[in-house]
Design a binder for these strands. Structure first.
Length: 293
DNA sequence: ACCCAGGCGGGCG
DNA sequence: CGCCCGCATGGG
């Protein structure tokens, strides 16, 4: 940090930095975060972004720590990534439908959904399936280190970009297995190829939720749950409700007296109960459920 | 040793 | 549609 420029980027309230960054969203897997200093760094396009968040009382301030200039990452991008314009009072009012949701909101108040790059989100959640958080991170980091384009500050390599889909599509299953991907190696290869040749992820953003989800499910390795994760965290579709083992378990236990319910029944339940904010409800259900059940 | 992890694809009835 | 199975790998 010797002589680095520090730029005040954004002031915000109802924001919990660590919960937002650590709650198994894409940033959890592709960024480096220091809890103590409140500093985070991650690649954005072809440069590194370093942020600090300092909170005092009920509000906090984001600072952009200098470094490689011209990253194109400013207050607008920051606001989109961390959904800083979300009205949390309104959201909490609508998702706090019962005691379980209320206690989750109370405990993790300020945890935001994040709105990430669609390709990053797609790859991260393909890797997430039948996997645990620590290992997801390790696989993502390995892919970045081995196959991400080098990011320079002058002539010094300061980081690695997120691997491009074209790069990964040319790798062999064996090379991907060597990154620890396991049986997902084939999914990664096929998804990378399909997204670089047959499906433009960056043209999906303007479509509605149902279209986005069904288009995503054409990608190898993307099923109902992963498609919802991408719709939610890659396209900002707040009605998406990803159902993983934890969410299924929580919903069955809290709302159906432990009775088994199908994925379809749970989707219907979530839509009826939380509607267009089901995605936020899911994030609080998931994180609280995983830590309390 | 055994079980599970932010599931999915494929095959079956 | 529902159900069942196998899938690599590492940590508890």
């Amino acid at each position: 940090m010797c002589g680095a420029k520090v730029l005040r980027l954004y002031s915000v309230r109802d924001f919990a930095f660590s919960y937002t960054v650590e709650s198994a969203q894409p940033l959890t897997f592709y960024s480096d975060y220091e809890v103590r200093s409140g500093a985070i760094s991650f690649p954005y396009k072809d440069s590194m972004v370093s942020l600090k968040y300092k909170s005092s009382d009920s509000k906090g301030v984001f600072y952009l720590v200098g470094g490689a200039g011209g990253s194109g990452f400013g207050s607008k991008e920051l606001s989109k990534l961390f959904r800083l314009e979300d009205n949390m009072d309104n959201i909490y009012g609508k998702i706090s439908t019962d005691a379980f949701m209320k206690s989750s909101v109370e405990k993790y108040r300020g945890m935001r959904l994040t709105h990430n790059d669609p390709w990053i989100t797609t790859l991260v959640f393909i890797i997430s399936q039948f996997n645990n958080i620590k290992r997801i991170r390790r696989i993502v980091k390995t892919l970045m280190e081995k196959y991400g384009d080098a990011i320079y500050d002058g002539d010094k390599v300061v980081g690695k970009a997120f691997p491009r889909m074209e790069t990964l599509s040319r790798l062999s299953v064996k090379e991907l297995m060597a990154c620890g991907a396991g049986f997902r190696a084939d999914y990664i290869r096929e998804a990378s190829r399909y997204c670089s040749e047959n499906l433009d992820l960056y043209r999906l953003g303007s479509k509605d939720y149902d279209t986005i989800k069904s288009e995503l499910m054409q990608v190898r390795g993307v099923g109902d749950k992963v498609a919802d994760c991408i719709a939610l965290m890659g396209y900002g579709k707040l009605e998406a409700f990803p159902i993983d083992t934890w969410v299924k378990r929580v919903v069955e236990r809290v709302y159906f007296k432990g009775k088994k319910k199908s994925i379809k029944e749970i989707h219907t339940f979530a839509e009826d109960r939380w509607g267009g904010l089901a995605g936020y409800a899911q994030q609080y259900l998931y994180w609280h459920g995983m830590h309390s059940l």
